[in-house]
Design a protein around this nucleic acid. Structure first.
Lengths: 358, 358
DNA sequence: CTTATTTGCACAATCGATGGTGCAAAGACT
DNA sequence: AGTCTTTGCACCATCGATTGTGCAAATAAG
């Protein structure tokens, strides 16, 4: 670590150096100087001084005065997940393009932590908050509302402000249909061959399950309750559920609808404990996309949510002064097995910096 | 979105309500009140008022006065990556446990953007900065140094302040050895059967390559230069390199050392374009861990970096007043094929909130 | 040469929390 | 009762940038 004693230059330093007042310096450096009829030459002098002294405005002071901070918050369940980190990546690009600074935090899907975390962000006077995948969006809403903070829901809807979410019903339908069609006509899937694992009592799970059941009923004729196993969003819970099924039936279901990649990891954990099983008669549909999962040794059909579309829509809606608290659906995309899609990172150039040191 | 007119309560509001002065309110609510000899009953009154009015201190005002913000920065190359998002997750837990607020941003491995981003964070008066995987750590150092900001390098080392990084040489050695040993004795690997793809002119790549070459030389007797293909950190560049090799030789190398998961994605993209190839005589070693990759239909040996260990070490070192700019190595872990490891998310309880609405 | 107008900028209040200082009132002590 | 402490708190400057207002000097108009 390092911490030299140097301090940052302030408008007062520059005002002394330039022989003008702090307010003049401030106006010049924040762009409002024409309105204040500052001479071009004065502005030029101050700008060059700022340049040589590496002046940058103290955001805390500016924010205190203007009660805006330039910070835009994103509240996630977790970072450590392909879908959410992709949201973070896209979110950051949008925020930075508006000249603001993203502040991304996670709250573990815990309602209490969600509210506390929102409070913390509010104490930094953030300008807007994007509430993503929250277990209790309306709880966070109360907190934002009390602070007069603009906010919007993503991924999981609330009832108080607009929500931008995936069309989970349609995605569930698409995925279920693709799983069923993947089986050959001579060995078709029976209703009890197709199970859904993962998810919980949230809007997304409900919709996906609704889509799953609708398609099952329509295509397979029946839709037994036992085939729905909303085991939550934890790999180990999913693993236990697969294990339990396996113990009871001596095999896995032929068709699996796995709700989210974290539960797919649970399936892997289960498989790791059964190294001699080949799972040849198995088709997995996963509501989430991961390129590696797509190439696993059994057919894996995936859903990729339209992250860029959702973020863009959310930024559009949050700017509308008095938008109604309706749900905006964004269509997800079905990804066939063995597909390597590009992501937000592909937009980056891969630069190489020639470096002096080895 | 929503934005009611309400304002947050301030110490001035509470001072009026309680009949005491703002400084008394401040002292009570920030814990310094005993030092100021405030009566217990006064403190109690103010605390209850703060409670009912949902008071939280304005961090910008506090930060302005104290020239600290409670923000701790993490500068990443990208969010959208299992390794870095796992670092973000672990970082956040550490920061929050100290009562501070994490602010995680990415700078795309671009030296200029890295410096600019650091400047932005500095303008928010962050208290510390963790520089992770930066292409030009010393460039960021200059910026921090000028602002008197404590900072430390992670993942890629700099020369000016301490660095906490993986033992990439050892990791490279481990991985290379495991790849070679994975081939049966009757069909052993030849020197030109084992290629390394990915990475660039950075410290981590150098060390991994050094480990790779050392083991190759020792175990296979030779180590041709052509087997080193540092194609960068972009999936498509890697894909092209695999394609080029394939075009030239009609097959892939039997053994592949893939430097980072993003380049592994490049391999998948290549494979997606060759759906009829089975790639049966192939062993991949990847310097990064991903559970799905671990279960691919060919043997995949992986390296998992010790994220928790690195973050913990970094927090330890950054608190040392005048630590020398040395490199702290953290040992990575070899992960055999078909292994589903647990991650930071497993520490979270999977709570379910019973909700009124469907 | 006056009066009106415009130009160019300085002054000072403000945002909310902090912390040094000062000073009454209450209590201790002689 | 008079002096000395201690207690309990108020007052005020401060952090750095923003912004409404005021006022000279320069210029234009008559």
């Amino acid at each position: 670590m390092a911490n030299s004693g140097k301090k940052k230059a302030t408008i007062y330093d520059l005002s002394v150096l330039s022989g003008s007042s702090p307010s003049t310096v401030s106006a010049v450096l924040n762009g409002t100087w024409r309105k204040r009829r500052i001479k071009e030459s004065t502005a030029e002098l101050i700008r060059s001084l700022a340049e040589t002294h590496q002046y940058t405005a103290n955001r805390q002071a500016r924010g205190l005065r203007s009660s805006r901070s330039g910070l835009v918050g994103l509240l996630l369940p977790v970072h450590d997940n392909r879908y959410f980190s992709s949201l973070a990546q896209t979110f950051e690009a949008h925020v930075r393009s508006k000249g603001q600074c993203p502040i991304v935090v996670s709250a573990s899907r815990d309602p209490e932590e969600e509210r506390k975390t929102a409070e913390t962000l509010i104490s930094y006077s953030i300008d807007e908050l994007f509430i993503c995948g929250a277990t209790d969006p309306d709880g966070v809403h109360e907190v934002c509302e009390a602070a007069g903070l603009k906010h919007i829901n993503i991924d999981l809807p609330g009832t108080k402000v607009p929500s931008v979410i995936s069309d989970n019903f349609e995605g569930g339908r698409l995925l279920t249909e693709a799983i069923i069609r993947h089986f050959p006509a001579d060995r078709p899937l029976q209703p009890t061959d197709l199970y859904l694992f993962g998810g919980r009592n949230d809007h997304a799970s409900h919709e996906r399950i609704r889509g799953f059941r609708a398609v099952k009923k329509a295509m397979l004729g029946d839709d037994p309750d036992e085939c729905i196993q909303p085991t939550g969003y934890a790999a180990n819970n999913a693993r236990k559920a697969f294990e339990a099924f396996y113990t009871r039936h001596g095999k896995l279901p032929r068709g699996l609808f796995v709700n989210s990649s974290i539960n797919f990891e649970g399936l892997l954990r289960f498989m790791a404990e059964h190294p001699h099983d080949n799972f040849t008669d198995l088709v997995v549909g996963c509501y989430d996309y991961d390129p590696f999962a797509s190439f696993l040794p059994f057919p894996v059909i995936m859903i990729r949510q339209n992250v860029e579309g959702m973020i863009a829509k959310a930024f559009e809606v949050i700017e509308q002064p008095r938008a109604a608290p309706r749900i905006h659906l964004v269509e997800p995309e079905l990804v066939p097995p063995r597909t390597a899609l590009t992501g937000p990172l592909d937009a980056l150039k891969d630069i190489d910096l020639p470096r002096g040191k080895s």
